[in-house]
Design a protein around this nucleic acid. Sequence first.
DNA 1: TTGACAACATACCCGGTAGTATGTTCATGT
DNA 2: ACATGAACATACTACCGGGTATGTTGTCAA
Lengths: 221, 221
Amino acid sequence: MAVGVPESVAESIEAAPSSTRREILDAAAHCFTARGYANTSIDDVARSLGSTKGRIYHHYASKADLFADVFKTGMDMNYQAIMPAFEAAGNVEEKLVRMARTHTTQMIATKPYQRAVWEGVEMHLRGSTTPEQRDTLTGLLAHRDRYSDIFKSVISECEKRGSLAFDNLSIANQVMFIALNSPLFWYSPRPGENKSDIDKLVDQVVEFALRGLGYKGEIKS
Amino acid sequence: MAVGVPESVAESIEAAPSSTRREILDAAAHCFTARGYANTSIDDVARSLGSTKGRIYHHYASKADLFADVFKTGMDMNYQAIMPAFEAAGNVEEKLVRMARTHTTQMIATKPYQRAVWEGVEMHLRGSTTPEQRDTLTGLLAHRDRYSDIFKSVISECEKRGSLAFDNLSIANQVMFIALNSPLFWYSPRPGENKSDIDKLVDQVVEFALRGLGYKGEIKS
DNA sequence: TTGACAACATACCCGGTAGTATGTTCATGT
DNA sequence: ACATGAACATACTACCGGGTATGTTGTCAA
């Protein structure tokens, strides 16, 4: 299996949303992470914007649509963050390390969006209420699966070259992602924290994940 | 810091609930994991029992109380599963391996309860609505923190002895737990699956987690 | 036999929330 | 100047779900 970016991925990454939509998205992402999707009312999002429902329903047909846009925006940000690391020169191991670091850094930098993505995945594992929501979520999940497959292919290459060691590729990929995503559940910004502090956190997480995959090499860049 | 079981832990582990309460708990745990706490109505739980609200509200004062009992029951099951591994003879490394295997096996065996525990932790990270709920959850979380501390102390011992290597103890513990808990998010029982299949899954997860902590020794028992 | 209580079922209330229907304001093209 | 539509705000409806108030049934002790 060749390591390549599916065309469908690049095509489905959309341009940055308009300023007002972005404002709504930011507020929605924060509310969703703060209270969860089900416990967040549209009025909550509107209140945190200093406006009313009308504004949101003017731009989104339903609460589910708003959530879907948060989800997709979060995933798009991940693609854009990861692609340079994926396309850069160097051997597969260096590529994996860079991708892992970028991904984890991204989880911290855009945490509200990424928690929405996480909750979206959980909602899909259950059965979302209406069939239409189901279809929308399935499309979004396919988007995420392609993202996951990019990592999967890189990991598989490394394993073939003997720089990683694990039993089952899918399980290894799953556990790795959960480890890399773990800051979503225990990180919250400290006052007076700088980029170097975050880099140290990322280093620890990435080292854990790659060691878990059986990596023996150096990780610090 | 000596490795020991706080007395408060042993005391707060309660006897198995009565048969009818256990029946309600099982149904509630399944509904909560299937649809999430917020999306699960008391009527849903009652319907899955073939009865009505009245039965549940006769045993529990509120939805929050029902959830709290699911949470506590799940944690109690964890304690009871882990204790033999914790108190058994052998060096700290063997103890850690056995505890990790037991914990992960437990995540799979009692998945509905453990997902409720997970959601309870997330609910606590956010701000649960009423102050009373908040207090109840805080008490439950303390229960869970003590459980986490048992692992933490064992890990710390191993690190002092040089059999583990990581930067920050708390972060290492967090990421390890999330890795060990990961089957909660990707495992679902297959038809015709036997204990040996599950053991293999557990082996992979535990190997990932301990390698992530810097463990170099053997893991298979 | 009966009183009392546990273990439910039934019927109802009511607050919150998604969604809608209808203003209102302002900018822009003609 | 005026029409038009985008971008909201306001007011309202309908429903769902947590919680309660009130039956109903069986059991068991005295």
